[in-house]
Design a protein around this nucleic acid. Sequence first.
DNA 1: GTGAAAGCGCTAACAA
DNA 2: TTGTTAGCGCTTTCAC
Lengths: 329, 329
Amino acid sequence: MCTIYEIAKRCGVSTTTVSRVLNNHPYVSEEKRQHILQVMKEMEYTPSSAARTLRSHQTKTIAVSVPAVDHPFFAQLIKGISKEALDQGYKAIVLQTFYQESVELEGLQLLKRKEVDGVILGALENKWETIEPFLSNGPIVMANEYHQTADIPIIGYDEREAAYKAVDYLIQSGRTSIGFCFDTESSEAQKQRKQGYLDALSDHGLPLKEDWLFGEAFTIEDGFRLMDLIHRMPDAPDAIFTGNDQVAAGLIKQAISYGYDIPKDLAVIGYDNQDICEVTAPTITTIDIPIVELGQQSVKQMIQLLQDQKPLQREHIQLPTRLVTREST
Amino acid sequence: MCTIYEIAKRCGVSTTTVSRVLNNHPYVSEEKRQHILQVMKEMEYTPSSAARTLRSHQTKTIAVSVPAVDHPFFAQLIKGISKEALDQGYKAIVLQTFYQESVELEGLQLLKRKEVDGVILGALENKWETIEPFLSNGPIVMANEYHQTADIPIIGYDEREAAYKAVDYLIQSGRTSIGFCFDTESSEAQKQRKQGYLDALSDHGLPLKEDWLFGEAFTIEDGFRLMDLIHRMPDAPDAIFTGNDQVAAGLIKQAISYGYDIPKDLAVIGYDNQDICEVTAPTITTIDIPIVELGQQSVKQMIQLLQDQKPLQREHIQLPTRLVTREST
DNA sequence: GTGAAAGCGCTAACAA
DNA sequence: TTGTTAGCGCTTTCAC
């Protein structure tokens, strides 16, 4: 591994000049530039990023935290983020919180230690008040989560409207008792989603039953569990908005095993429009969410912020969602 | 952002002493140590990682390249890698090759530029001869791929044995014409897998038909496509080893839509034991592979290498696989 | 057009 | 036990 100094010596110039060609500065004679380039190639010179970072204070790296990368939703989010970052000459460090506040904080520490130029929050484990102070260290953007007042770019979709669309569709199909699944109470996005559910119910004069709200719904396994629950209910709903396709798939599978006719006995609607929707029997009606694009947009925003050097501003970008009807409703 | 120098001044000591407490070196009086720690806290001192890296030549970061993070297999691999890395105080940069050689090379460049301490290859896009020269820049380990001669740790599982197990099971179940799906020809791992398939056939005196070998099998979509193909074959197999659960799920779904009775008309066996196996109808018999653990092991090996500073050696670690029988066979 | 030189923030010989 | 000092590899004034 040779340094800029050796190149300079070999070429009979100063390190300044070498640095100049490295950074495409003007004021280097074409002759010298070519020679230096040539020697760099010969010696397989590679600039030390650590040294550059130390001087220039930029790492060309962003950190992204999500609960876990193997949930299809977050896998796609990371897909978009990691791809877009690379396309733009940035690297992406992936942190999995497993719903723990500390890991999210670790990502923010990376920002503080100047190990990354910015942080994308793919979820929100800590209170916003805990996160806010880190804004002085660099930009933070929120993807797929929401917060009322945070003065940062928020990239997501209209959760309320998406949920409304789903529940409204169930109602239009003649359903009157509709259940709702959610993952955690704490998420603002989930609250908005629930609001959509509530609004759809009340707009059609339908009742809300607390028993029909099901928490901790993340995975296929949870779908099994929830169906067990529903199966035992004396007053079970005739339709259910699952909040994610994995839960829908598990629920449907278990229902079938109990002898239900889906959708006749129970209509099921998913969320995300993952591939799994097409292989269950019946296939799953769902809400399509442009997840990969959401990830890409987040990176674009981040890089914009990094380049503009302007103060962070609140901005709310909402990508379009779409109802995709299949056999489960 | 304050520096070690300011802390030193505030405490009336030299930067050396501050550095010493920072690195838990002995030979600092308890009194001074406490005082320095105290002042650091007060001033919210955070060490600059760039400066540390420049001096110590280690980034505490590893790069991992996979074809795409949203394929369930790689999502789980990344899950293991990213988690284990973080647990050990390392960060993981994720690169998605999308099967392009250039991105994999970019990961290796990170090693050369000293932006990462090591690289984990979750697949192999380039020829080994292309990759080998980078070994002089730092350790490389291979996860989930295989190479005959590469002198690096290879963490995987016995592809031949796993495939053999799957095909043998189909044969034991009375199947005689067995198809085989693979993704790319170029992968050594795939070759071994195919060898397992071939060995199982020949051990039981069963014929191999070229028509029963299906390439480009990655996704659910591919499963649909392959079933279309099989459906139109005059001499279709009565069982198929799909090489991954997504393909199996797609294949099964499409077969059912064509009126097939699975497994009676066509036995289907997956690979990976993903969650999806439990929600299709019928559920999918598969080979369980400890993917997350595979990711974790790769990181453990990498960190071992980084700490030992010993020359890289060839090492082949194989994790156990297991047949999981369900309804599709 | 070009170069000398002063750091970026930290670590580690070496001296004391 | 502590401090002095010389860099790590690069960028960037400032002077020529």
